[in-house]
Nucleic acid binder design. Structure first.
Lengths: 185, 185
DNA sequence: TGTGGACAGTTGCTTAAACAAAGGTCTACA
DNA sequence: TGTAGACCTTTGTTTAAGCAACTGTCCACA
C-alpha cells in the first residue's frame, strides 16, 4: 500500500489550517447574510471605511481585495445599485474613479461589525489564552510576511506622479493586506 | 470620527488569518494548475485516496469537501470525464453510487503530492521552529474542535443500516475534515 | 505638436458553484 | 400489500468571478 504518500503530517497541517479558516468563515457567514452582504461585499466596505476619505481607487480596491479589476467593477456595480457605495470621478486623472462609501454604506457596516467582532471573539480569539493568542498571531505574521513579500508595498503611495496626486496618503490599513494581485510574482 | 469601530484588533486577527490562508493557497495553486487540477479536484482526489477502498459515496464526498451535493456531481463529472475517477453503483443501495479513484487518478495524485508537500514545507511548516509549529497546530486544533463540533461524527459509520452496509469502515481520515455540510447546525 | 506605450476601467464570454426541484429508491409501518 | 416519508443523485437556473479584448486617458519623448 502506498497510501503513506498521502499521509504526510504536512498535508495534515495544511488541512487543519484550511479547516479552521473555512469553518471560521462559515460561522461568520450568517451575520453577513442577514445584512444582505456577501463576504466580498463586507471586505470591500470595510476597506473603504478604513481608507482616508472613505474611498479607494478601483484598482487599489482590486489589489487590496485580491479580486481582478473586472471583479471589482461588478462588486462596486452591486454595491452602488444598493446605494452603499458611490463612484466618484477622480479630479486629476480622468481615467480613474473612486469607490466611495456612502452614509448608507457606513450604517450598514456599523450594523454588522459589532456582531461580527463578537463572533470572532466567540469562535476564535476568545478560545485562546492571552499569550497563546499573541503567539498564534506572531506565527501568522511570520507566514504572512513570507507569503506576501510586498505586504506594505501596495499600500504605500505609488511612484506614479498622477496616482500619488490622486490618492496621496493611503496607509489607513489596519488589516494590512494588499492581496495577491499586488504581490504576484 | 467613528473609524475606531472598524479598527478592533480582533478584526485584524481575523484579517491576518485570512491573509495567511489566501496567500498560502495562492502559493500552492501553480502546482495544481500545472497538473490540470483545481484545488477542489485535488481535495476530492486525495480524500478518495485516503478512503478505504479509494472510494466514497457522493454524499459523503459532499460532506467532507463542504461542497453541495450538486457541486460534487459536477466535480465528479469533470474528473470522470478525465478518467481520474469512476462512478461505481452501490451493490446494496441502488440510490447510492461511489466515486472511486482510478489508477490514472492515483498516478495524477502521486505526481502532484511531492511538490505540494515541498511547497507546504517552504511556505508554512518550514518557517517555524519545531515547538512553534507544535504550538501553532495545537492552537489550530483548539479552534477546529469548536468550529466543527462534530468533526468525527460525520466520519464514523452512519446509523442507517444501509449506508453502514455500503461503507462500513471509513475512518481513513488523516485530514480529519468532514466539512461544514456535515456539521452545520 | 503629436505619437507610442502604459495604465484605468468596463464589457463579453466562460467556468464554477449554490439553490431548488425532480426522479428514483429505500425503510417503516399500517 | 402498499403507502408515506426520508434519502441519494442529477438537472435547470442563477450568481459570482476570471480572462481577454476594448475604449479612453495619461505621460514621455521626439
Amino acid at each position: 500500500m502506498n497510501v503513506q504518500r498521502f499521509d504526510d503530517p504536512r498535508l495534515t497541517a495544511m488541512g487543519l489550517l484550511a479547516e479552521v479558516f473555512v469553518g471560521l468563515t462559515a460561522k461568520m457567514a450568517p451575520v453577513f447574510a442577514a445584512a444582505g452582504l456577501s463576504e466580498v461585499d463586507f471586505e470591500t466596505l470595510i476597506r473603504l471605511a478604513r481608507s482616508p476619505r472613505q474611498s479607494l481607487r478601483m484598482s487599489d480596491l482590486a489589489a487590496q481585495t485580491g479580486l481582478s479589476t473586472s471583479g471589482v467593477t461588478r462588486v462596486v456595480d452591486r454595491l452602488e445599485r444598493e446605494g452603499l457605495v458611490r463612484r466618484v470621478a477622480c479630479a486629476t486623472d480622468r481615467r480613474a474613479s473612486y469607490a466611495t462609501l456612502t452614509d448608507k454604506g457606513r450604517e450598514r457596516l456599523e450594523a454588522v461589525v459589532p456582531q461580527h467582532v463578537a463572533d470572532i471573539e466567540e469562535w476564535f480569539t476568545g478560545l485562546l489564552g492571552p499569550e497563546e493568542l499573541d503567539r498564534f498571531l506572531a506565527t501568522l505574521r511570520v507566514i504572512r510576511d513570507v507569503v506576501r513579500p510586498c505586504a506594505t508595498a501596495g499600500v504605500e503611495p505609488r511612484d506614479h506622479a498622477h496616482s500619488k496626486a490622486c490618492a496621496p496618503d493611503r496607509q489607513g490599513e489596519l488589516a494590512p493586506d494588499p492581496r495577491e494581485a499586488a504581490s504576484t510574482s
